[in-house]
Write a protein that binds this DNA or RNA. Structure first.
Length: 198
DNA sequence: ACGCAGATTTTCT
DNA sequence: GAAAATCTGCGTT
């Protein structure tokens, strides 16, 4: 099926972050991390936009260019993976032209492929919780800092075509878990999906 | 079903 | 030294 289609190209990511966020819903994230052909994949059902240096919740707020935020300044379509709360990894897709630091946080997937591998990595049998949350999906797909800065077109993690949802299926709301700009409506998810994080 | 505390370490002040 | 784009387990309702 669509899992075999081509990776989404640079032009897709080199646009306003909010558009890219909406556009990522329904696409498929494929991971070939872990050797031995342990392929895992899921349909993106929930995302958040972190729209640039003017966004107080963005890691690059005020153009804070540090070792951590460097990937945000790179090529659109780069994976930005950061570590937080002492134990969790989160995955973003870098957006906008090079040197404009913005990204889309991938928050939830509908598991499609490699479910057994996901269950092992997550140490759970509850499929509902396999990929419902930014840190959960990273654990399920084997995403760690090792893939930070890799290309989502050619790297071990790729975003491929999938099927676009109807506009009426997309729900907009405030981002989760932040304290700055907490009311900005930059979270997008699929209304009828049982796989979103909440 | 809901709410709260603890885990654990990087990053920046 | 404090906060952090989170998750889990355990408590109570």
């Amino acid at each position: 099926m669509s899992i075999r289609s081509r990776a989404v190209g640079t032009k897709f990511y080199a646009r306003p972050t909010e558009e890219v966020a909406r556009g990522l819903l329904g696409r498929i994230l494929v991971s070939n991390i872990g050797g031995r052909g342990e392929r895992t994949a899921g349909r993106i059902v929930e995302v958040e936009a972190y729209v640039g240096p003017h966004d107080p919740a963005c890691h690059a707020y005020g153009h804070r260019r540090t070792a951590r935020t460097e990937p945000l300044y790179g090529q659109p379509g780069t994976a930005y993976v950061y570590f937080t709360y002492g134990m969790h990894w989160c995955l973003n897709a870098v957006t906008e032209p090079r040197d404009f630091p913005a990204a889309v946080l991938i928050r939830a997937l509908e598991p499609l492929d490699g479910l057994d591998t996901m269950r092992q990595r997550r140490r759970t049998e509850q499929d509902r919780h396999l990929c419902a949350g930014p840190a959960r999906l990273c654990e399920a797909l084997g995403v760690t800092g090792a893939v930070n800065g890799s290309s989502l077109q050619r790297g071990p993690l790729q975003v491929v075509q999938g099927t676009s949802p109807k506009k009426a299926e997309i729900v907009v709301g405030p981002r989760i878990g932040i304290t700055q700009a907490a009311d900005w409506p930059l979270r997008f998810y699929l209304k009828s999906s049982p796989w979103v994080s909440r």
